[in-house]
Computed example of a mutant assay.
Amino acid sequence: MDILTAIKNRHSVRNYIDKAIDNETLAALKAEIDACNKESGFHIQLVANEPKAFEGMMANYGKFSGVQNYIALVGRKDADFDEKSGYYGERIALKAQMLGLNTCWVAMTFSKGAAKKAVTIHSGEKLGCVLALGYGKTQGVAHKSKPMTDLCETNGNVPEWFKNGMEAAMLAPTATNQQKFIFTLSGDTVTAKATGGFYSKVDLGIVKYHFEIGSGRTL
């Protein structure tokens, strides 16, 4: 599976079967995490065979079941923490999809206390969102999207690469499917910004990564 196919096929999955992730798949995913950490300066960690973060009341509220693995997005408490965690977290989520795994972005409906006990958080770092990880009972369902014209601003002819980028961005997961972002094309320059709403900065990082993959352009 290539990454564009992963973008189209990846949907949020909350319920997982009782199946361990094999060592080869874990190694490939860890290699991607290491690459993201090296590039970003983050301290993202894979937690395997540890169900406690998804056993409490919050996980039940979030309708999660069978979650025994997750990706913990840990990094320095910088101003760009949220956006970078979205960008690199989604990069890892798509790699997981390419490896035959399923994921779900989780901001609040997990036990943060249990997760903090399972990871290493250095001074000056914090734990943000996590990604539930494993083999889903289903492959999830596609989310509805706003029209492209509601999510971008352009003038004149719109190049094909920009349309491709927007189509990929429209497939990106966002908190409660709010899609609080706007891309602006001015000449050959693209900018993207969050337009408010909870976790919209995390969402901005996610949609930026999707846009870059779809368009072949770096923002």
Rank of each mutant, 00 (worst) to 15 (best):
G41M: 05
E160P: 01
Q68E: 12
K77A: 11
F81Y: 11
A169M: 07
A20M: 10
D78V: 12
I206G: 01
N60G: 13
T138G: 10
D78E: 13
S123I: 07
Q178L: 03
A28M: 14
K193Y: 02
T191V: 11
R91N: 12
T174G: 03
R10M: 06
H210N: 11
A169T: 04
D78N: 10
L204W: 08
G124D: 08
I44H: 06
S65M: 04
F54P: 00
Y199S: 05
V74I: 13
M57A: 13
K38N: 13
K117Q: 14
K117C: 06
V130W: 00
G124L: 07
T174P: 01
F181K: 03
H210E: 08
G197Y: 04
C36T: 08
Y199N: 15
S40Q: 08
T149A: 12
T176V: 15
A27S: 15
R217H: 14
L171W: 03
N9Q: 12
L4P: 00
V202H: 10
S186D: 12
F211S: 03
K112M: 10
N102A: 13
E160S: 10
N15H: 11
A79L: 07
D188C: 03
V74L: 04
G100Y: 10
N37A: 08
A53T: 14
E153M: 09
A79M: 04
E160R: 05
I182V: 14
I7T: 06
H143T: 14
R14V: 04
A72F: 02
K201Q: 15
H11A: 09
G124W: 06
E160F: 02
A175E: 04
S186V: 11
A72N: 05
G86A: 06
I71V: 15
K137H: 09
G86E: 02
D22C: 11
E90K: 06
K117D: 14
A172T: 09
N164D: 13
I121Q: 04
A6C: 10
G216A: 09
